[in-house]
Design a protein around this nucleic acid. Sequence first.
RNA 1: GCGCCCGUAGCUCAACUGGAUAGAGCGUCUGGCUUCGGACCAGAAGGUUGCGGGUUCAAGUCCUGCCGAGCGCACCA
Length: 570
Amino acid sequence: MSFWIKIKNGIAANLSKILNKEVFAKELVLTPNQEMGDLGWPIFALAKELGRNPAELAKEIAKKYPTENNIKAKATGPYLNFVINKKYLAKNIIKEIEEQKEKYGHNENLKNKKIMVEFAHPNPFKSFHIGHLRNILLGESIVRVLEAQGAKVIRTNYQGDIGMHIAKCLWSFQKIDSKDYPTTTDLKVALLGKCYAEGSQAFENIPEAQAEIKEINKKIYSGEDEKIKNLWTLGKNWSLEKFHEIYQRVYSHFDCEYMESEMITDCREYIKQAEVKGILEKSDGAIVFKGEKHGLETRVFLNSEGLPTYEGKELALAYREFSDFGKIDLCIHNVAVEQKSFFAATFKVEELLDEKRFKGKQYHNAYEFVGLKKGKMSSRLGNVILGNDILNEAKENIKKIIAEKNNSLGDDKIEIIAVAAVKYAFLKISAFKYLAFDMEESINLSGNSGPYILYTYARIQSIFKKIINHKTLIINTDFEKLSDTREFSLIKKLAIYSEIIEAATKNYDPSEIAKYIYELAQMLNDYYHAIPILQADEETKNARLALLNSISQVIKNGLGLLGIEVVEEM
RNA sequence: GCGCCCGUAGCUCAACUGGAUAGAGCGUCUGGCUUCGGACCAGAAGGUUGCGGGUUCAAGUCCUGCCGAGCGCACCA
């Protein structure tokens, strides 16, 4: 348990004793400013319950509060506020960070929990676009946040390698002579994209083509046509090759990559079981789930041509996911909000099918959609923004800035900064907010941005480089020397870090962490400008270095949870 | 038409899940490198939180009615 939580628990325990009534630590709020103290407890509710005037009651409780040296109670109007001794907090927090280092802020709330996070979900034969990018960045961060709370996390990715979109692509792709196949990954996926666009156009405009495409789709499902099967395998491998490049580029990996095509056989058995149990029923030649009696919509599981739909295949996936890695406590499906009714229905069917296995263990993390600020994105029309294009664009912009400064920086570092810029731009916005993407505006390199935070971090490292053996100085720090109010604000900010991780877990929303690190970086930059570090007398300097060391550790930890790497210089 | 989500500064977003004076960035204007890194910092302008009603000590946050946008409404994934 973090030192900060201990302080809050201690105050809550004291209040509980005085009032003979349970007071919870989470009722304590941060004060808006330093003069009011550090933590506050609004006592309106209690005053009302006792029929008392809140301000008078606050004074009375403050008087009864035990007089400790380190935490003092005082009444501020209808709030009971607590003042924490600065040196006491500084010493303990800095010590805690020094000891726990990259584990600082972590907890064991999810110890012994096995959680599967299913994310990324690109479709082979189609492009990895901006929506997939938001998905993978969010998913990767959620995984890290859960791990920081002690959970054992299994990373999975479910990729749609079957269906009409592929049939449309292959319809056009089969006409290309293998001698004309491109050699680079980028050209290969570009070709698949072009074929898909052509196939889609043909499907809409040419009746014969439509029939041919439907035929190809059936052949893909049956796997009996060698030629189609080979083309399908080839195209899929091209796509996966590209996807893996991207996963690596954003520091993601998966314990298991499920393919939709792997589900088409097994799912028939589960659909049949569900039909026998009366969960699914026949309707117009299809087998459907009539969700209305559960307040849901009707969804098709097996279509009238006898092919399993996405819903049908989901049943087989669920059984795989809940058995391949032993018993799991929770499966988080990181999928955009548009699939909400799809998941509501499939979760219900799974629950009715096998309550013990699935009930309460499936969760759809319905994050919001990414769209374009200008125009509409459509892979059919070819105006999609690719995940890689965004990263490349950010990289070019960073190169430009470096060139303007006449600096030089290795490509590996520029890449890290570019990835940081893009990741931060996506993750700083709440996952539950529609993201209107605009290339120029969305990837900031200054202000509230990834590079700003990396710059702040690099700046601290730069100070350390000027000191020899600064780490050994921290042990004997005189914390009394940290007397500036900015220093205390920084220490308090460091103290609450563990609570931020908990907040990010509650809604599976890493934007809490992004916001926190930004504020911390901002406070540091202000401090950096106002207070000299290296010019201070020896003891003060050491105390300030100890503080800087803690700040840089927390920035690094927080960025780590967002899936962002740091650079020592930039 | 029904269901879900949303509406906060010119733009993009915060507001610790009902608490104290609604805050940041971008953009605009002003100032700051002879000082630990100017991808920085300080300051200014910018708000009837879409509109109306309600709940209570307290509402951007909760309930309700409008207005507006997005997503979803069975054989795509």
